[in-house]
Computed example of a mutant assay.
Amino acid sequence: MIDIQHVTKRYKDVTAVDDVNFTIRQGEIFGIIGYSGAGKSTLLRCLNLLERPTEGKILIDGKDLTSLSDKEVRKERQKIGMIFQHFHLVSSKTVFDNVAFSLKAAGKTKEEIQKRVPELLEMVGLSDRSRHYPAQLSGGQKQRVGIARALANDPKVLLCDEATSALDPTTTKSILQLLKKINENLGITVVLITHEMEVVQDVCHRVAVMENGKVVELGEVYDIFAAPKTALAKQFVRTVHSLELPERLLAGRKGPIVQITFQGESAEEAVISETLKQFNVSANILHGQISYIQDRPLGTLIIEMIGSNADVQQSIDYITKRTNQLEVLAGVA
């Protein structure tokens, strides 16, 4: 659907995006995460040529946007909706007129606009706010207007530049659920820029992790949460799944402390109970949690294993075989 080929964007001596390559599939919600200055927003703006790449190509549905004239690019942008962090609504216009703006720009007739705008407002849950002005709306309602405006011309792609960063957690959840509903019902490909891993966990199918203009890790969201490979990805995962133990829990321990990750079916099986039945060991649970990512369970458990060296090692081998993911965090004190 979106093919990013060797894209680089430079501003004089600064390289904001550095030789980025990946493909975004049709109908998926694709996340791009990174801290400020990572290059993620610049990359997003390259996708609809608000920023022209210094090098490389952007292909959408097989069409190379970088080879088009400015006039042709403006036409192609009608197929690419965009949502901004700060809404960018016209304060002097009503909700209806803010949404109608995109339709007027596309040359739609008055009759088409009168029919289409109410459909869009119903889709985003704002049918009763048609004649209100932006100053009369909450932050979440303003973003819903922005989403309706972005969907006005039936785009194939929806670009979201930090669309929830200015919202409180409860409103963020509602906007993410709306984007997920739009993706599922309309089949629109959504590209979502964020610096919050919780946003990625809630709605994204795949994610690219960016640092210093480069993509340092890319994969299925579930896989990156289960086994992040880079230090940056691990850091982002820890912001959602904190596994830090206080020093007092590590002091005076009687056995090794292990961290076990349960994926898929193993997250719903009684692996620890079966281990304790089979081997002469006891377990002191220090930390545990389970999350559901794309409806797939992902569990983490940190335990102190107490018993003879032989029994503990047999237990570790058994759990490792069952889960494939066991890490010894600390040996015997």
Rank of each mutant, 00 (worst) to 15 (best):
P228R: 01
N153G: 08
L158P: 13
I224H: 01
V190N: 09
E217R: 01
P169M: 04
T230I: 04
S266D: 04
F262L: 06
F225D: 01
T239A: 03
I193F: 10
S174P: 11
S266P: 01
G255H: 07
K181T: 12
T172Q: 07
Q259G: 14
V157E: 09
H205M: 02
H241E: 15
V157C: 14
P155F: 10
F225C: 03
L178V: 05
P169K: 05
K254Y: 15
P256Q: 08
R238W: 07
D154E: 15
E196G: 09
E268W: 10
M197Y: 01
E162G: 05
C204V: 03
R238S: 09
F225K: 01
K181F: 10
E268T: 13
Y222D: 01
L158H: 09
V209K: 00
P256C: 10
G187H: 10
T189L: 02
N185P: 15
L250M: 14
A267M: 03
S273N: 13
V209L: 00
V215R: 09
V216L: 02
M197A: 00
K254L: 15
G264E: 04
G219K: 00
L249D: 13
T164A: 04
L276F: 11
S165R: 04
E268V: 14
V240T: 05
H241D: 14
L192M: 15
D223F: 00
K156N: 13
Q263D: 06
K156R: 11
V221Q: 04
L250H: 06
C160D: 08
N212F: 06
E198Y: 07
P228Q: 02
T194H: 02
V240A: 05
